[in-house]
Amino acid sequence: MAQVEAELQPQAEAAPKPQGYWSGVLGRLAGDKVAMACLIVIALLILSAVFAPWLGLADPYRGSMIARLKPIGTEGHILGADEQGRDMLARLIYGGRLTLFIGLMPVVFAFFIGSALGIAAGYVGGLTNTIIMRVVDVFFAFPSVLLAIAISGALGAGITNSLVSLTIVFIPPVTRVAEAVTSGVRSLDYIDAARASGAGALTVIRVHVIGNVLSPIFVYATSLTSVCMILAAGLSFLGIGVRPPEPEWGLMLNTLRAAIYVDPWLAALPGVMIFATSLCLNLLSDGLRSAMNVRD
């Protein structure tokens, strides 16, 4: 009696080689041309920023009265020179260091803090959820630009303070997304099944929740990096972020503002960098979103 048909799938598809989830994601991402192009651009930006001192560039801090506002294409200054005669190419590349750092780190911090808060709120529910989410709602009442300006203004200018204020700005949206995704996963039967096998809350979260909520939160956070870069640049532009003479794209945009009637192309260069980087980050996060979709 106890014989079970060892049938199942008569057309016996050749068992696909079991592959990890992340290798699958990378494989699909590699097939996405737009995302790959963006990834290359961002990688180049980061690499050039990191290795700037070894690229044989001009000193980004040394000005020259003669070279002031040299246009793009001038010999010795391929991308021209700024209002103090500092080499634009060098300043743009060195500027990438700070800009990318302040653009990415707050999102990284916010990703960890917000995910933790959101997962806790979504999984535990009840009063914990109410408290966390109502506090988050308070932050949502302010536009993010205003909030960043207010906090930075209160803390004072400087790189650390910019990092802190931007992190605070991005924790609420990440928390909200994390909470929504976690509540969704929480109601699925496999969480019940895991609880029914006697696992405690922390085990269930570690094994079953995190893996399933982290990727949507991660994708969302990637899309925040472009906003964060623009905000960071904005803070510097307003003079409450990075202080001169540090090269930073937002700050450069601000100081070159006066030259916009003299040489608009030159003045627009830092803006172009901000635009291109945030566009690439956005497209990359789109690509990541579709690559992380397991079911097709």
């Binding site: 048909e5 049938e7 199942l8 799938q9 008569p10 057309q11």
Partner: peptide, 20 residues
Amino acid sequence: AIPGAPPSLETRPDACSFAP
């Protein structure tokens, strides 16, 4: 019980689909 599961229909059937 009828054993197995229905075919996936990735190719156009050229024999009786139920035969397996």
